[in-house]
Design a protein around this nucleic acid. Sequence first.
DNA 1: CTGAAAGCGCTAACAT
DNA 2: ATGTTAGCGCTTTCAG
Lengths: 340, 340
Amino acid sequence: MLSKKATIDDVARLADVSIRTVSRVINDSPRVGQATRAKIKQIIEDLNYHPNTQARGLAARRSYLLGMIYDNPDALYINDVQRGVLSVCRESGYELVVHPCDMHSDTLTEEAVSFVNRSQLDGVIILPPISENNDLAGALAKNNVNYVRLASVPLDKAEHVVISNERSATAAMAEYLVGLGHCRIGYIAGPKGMKSTRERLEGFCDALEKHGCKLETEMIARGAYTFESGIECARMLLANPNRPTAIFASNDEMAVGAITAAQEMGLKIPDDLSIAGFDDSILASRITPRLTTIRRPVMQMARKATVKLIAAVDGREEDACRGVTLVPSLVTRDSTRSLD
Amino acid sequence: MLSKKATIDDVARLADVSIRTVSRVINDSPRVGQATRAKIKQIIEDLNYHPNTQARGLAARRSYLLGMIYDNPDALYINDVQRGVLSVCRESGYELVVHPCDMHSDTLTEEAVSFVNRSQLDGVIILPPISENNDLAGALAKNNVNYVRLASVPLDKAEHVVISNERSATAAMAEYLVGLGHCRIGYIAGPKGMKSTRERLEGFCDALEKHGCKLETEMIARGAYTFESGIECARMLLANPNRPTAIFASNDEMAVGAITAAQEMGLKIPDDLSIAGFDDSILASRITPRLTTIRRPVMQMARKATVKLIAAVDGREEDACRGVTLVPSLVTRDSTRSLD
DNA sequence: CTGAAAGCGCTAACAT
DNA sequence: ATGTTAGCGCTTTCAG
């Protein structure tokens, strides 16, 4: 069957050169004659030779492995990031090792560092909300591991973050709602302590004020990015004698919860109440009415992050340090309407 | 900062033993004295020593890396499998490398084999629908790579599959619906050519007949496991002058499509029509009305598959060959009701 | 432009 | 129960 796998020695022997030269070809080093190079490439092809990644890694102190560290209840988001990262990995000969973990664990940092060392990862990409953990980032830096964080604010050197400007995204949403004639708007926020919670809220709030609509304290409910919390918050908001004409939930899960709660109260969406979310999750387009929401360029962010990471691994400082900020976009559907 | 990472030599020197002995301790080999072992373990701890996986792999022809090959539009499913696989990996010192791919690609098999070789994977887990590809499985076998397929029928040796009995699951669904008094039932099937499509259909059909309800040809619509196809199929089914009183869609996406279509036609679910799905995806519990569906034990399957795979890698034949069949369960919610 | 040789950190025969 | 030693397949000074 399959005769033993070819090694660099086989290639060298057949090409009648030293393995050093073959190695040069494999690694695209210059200083190899055209003819020699072509010949070697041909032989590599014929032999169906693939360099052994482990040996390569061992010798070069590289693993060609990238890691992805996350603890995110949102499988869709994770999946999108994964696809984005992988699309770049493919072009660059890297593989992706995934590492979900518990963001509340005491040993999170320790665990993550151990993960990187254990597998000799060349670098890691950290997803929100763990990406907001400065402790982790600090430990990685101290251990000399390359990392890039997906975030909503510049919480690290440009080298280490890719940002989606959620503040401007929610601002756009606020303007859209105001444009529809809404002014008394309910806001379902995320949990305290997360940067993105604050970014989203402030962006929305500021934009509203700019248009002369204040976001009253009683119109802000604190959710937990879950369906259930969306239900509760909406009930609270709608219990107010002076009911809002629109509710913006800072993620889709909560928005769907809000729709559910509103419908239970006999309100028609969007006739009696407009509702919008954030994420453009699969739910958003499946629910009735289809949800107006905000779409983050997740795959793109993941791609950019990976490009930066690999640049850092390769020591291409300039590419690695280039700042990256992307802006989410508004997706208008059927859950919001003009107040006429 | 961080003085150079400790190696096995450092440990050996400090313990005043040969590296061979340290190696034995690392690999839990017997034939090491109690005292020596304890001492070495202590030193390993003190030094915060972690064996270099690449060197280990290179020497032992092992990578401690498992792969996951898939092309599944369902991020939730993938995510669940991933979590299941990883939970076992953690206990066994393995890491997971993910590899999405295009099931319709001509080079799928070649690509997958190359992936495994390139990264020296110790084994791979293959998800449906790619798991049904015998070509791929054959190529892996020929290349001596360990693999386990997640499937709905025993399409390979016990060593290479973990099965979820979807036939009995849809049978249970049929019985449940009949129990509610439904007999004229519409069925939205999956795409032709997939084993699971057939399994689900036959299980449903057979159970129906056992209870004296025939599944008429005109009551079977061929979908594509997508939301849109669910809409179309439901429209077709409901256009029949002798309308069904219930529709079973063979996945949730299509079931949600069916609900959407039915509601557009002015039908109330479940008052005018019962609808059920398959998957228990996130949609199922968020949609209104909440969807009656079937839940596969995805994480469990993934765990079992990983255990088998690692057993095979370790050469523990018996554990590797033990047959595994799991049964999905019925989840009843609000989208189905008794016909009275 | 190319080659010789010294490792990278670990495992596994083979000894003792 | 423990030590010696030869690689695993590749990269990388250092020569030429």
